[in-house]
């Protein structure tokens, strides 16, 4: 049986879809942020893979068709953004300043925490791009000589966590405007958070989409400057 699973073309993708569906059902039933479909599905798949003694590569062979679609889907984020063009035009200054404030906060917070935990320079620069989209984050980490694999892990954890808490943080801190909610979620937790922003509303989704690109680009510049601080 294990041989069949290891060789299967469809097992990985099927398992991913099934696990996500279970996550969605659990979310519907329990309504708590911890029952986040993304978290549940990833945890469930890891448990199943370890339990059945299937290595990650065999799973990924089948599941990579999903990853393949990630670039086209990210390109498509231009559509909701274009649909909110009028709103974006009116608020362009506030939106860009908001994203910039988030990028500076992220870099500054990582700097302070790294000092607090006495992390070395290499670990510090590894964490600097933690809030931005994976592909840009990898580039920044490489450029600054960080541990790229840890950067990727940290970006994933940030994304799943942001997706989990996005709605709650906006409520807790009374972030009122849909624009601000979108900017906050996208700047803090890139594309994985953006899928949550899309659920909250069209404006949230559009602003979160824009934030992925803008915060990513600002972090490329900002991280280079911040790298010299520790």
């Amino acid at each position: 049986m294990r041989e069949i699973l290891l060789e299967s073309t469809y097992f990985g993708a099927m398992l991913s879809l099934a696990a996500y569906e279970i996550g969605v059902l659990m979310k519907k039933k329990f309504k708590l942020p911890i029952f986040n479909p993304m978290l549940i599905s990833v945890a469930l798949i890891i448990i199943i893979l370890i339990f059945c003694n299937i290595d990650y590569e065999s799973y990924y062979d089948g599941a990579q068709v999903l990853s393949y679609l990630l670039t086209p889907a990210t390109v498509c984020l231009a559509v909701p953004l274009y649909e909110q063009l009028e709103l974006l035009r009116r608020n362009i200054k506030a939106v860009f300043l908001g994203i910039a404030s988030g990028v500076v906060t992220s870099l500054l917070f990582v700097l302070l925490m790294s000092m607090l935990f006495h992390l070395d320079h290499k670990m510090y620069v590894t964490l600097l791009p933690k809030s931005i989209t994976t592909a840009i984050g990898i580039g920044v980490s490489e450029e600054l000589n960080g541990y790229v694999t840890i950067t990727v892990a940290v970006i994933m954890i940030t994304g799943i966590f942001g997706n989990m808490i996005g709605e709650g943080v906006c409520r807790l801190f009374h972030i009122k405007e849909p624009i601000s909610r979108g900017v906050a979620i996208g700047t803090a937790s890139h594309a994985m958070g953006t899928t949550k922003a899309m659920e909250l509303g069209e404006i949230e989704g559009a602003m979160s989409s824009l934030s992925i690109a803008v915060s990513g680009l600002l972090t490329v510049a900002g991280a280079t400057i911040f790298a010299s601080f520790l």
């Binding site: 994203i99 917070f109 925490m113």
Partner: peptide, 26 residues
Amino acid sequence: LPVVVITLLSTVVVMAVTGKCTDLFL
């Protein structure tokens, strides 16, 4: 431990600060 603490905390802090700042700018 430090990595996970920094990652989770900063996600909350960045989200809250960004949202509040954008609200303020608007």
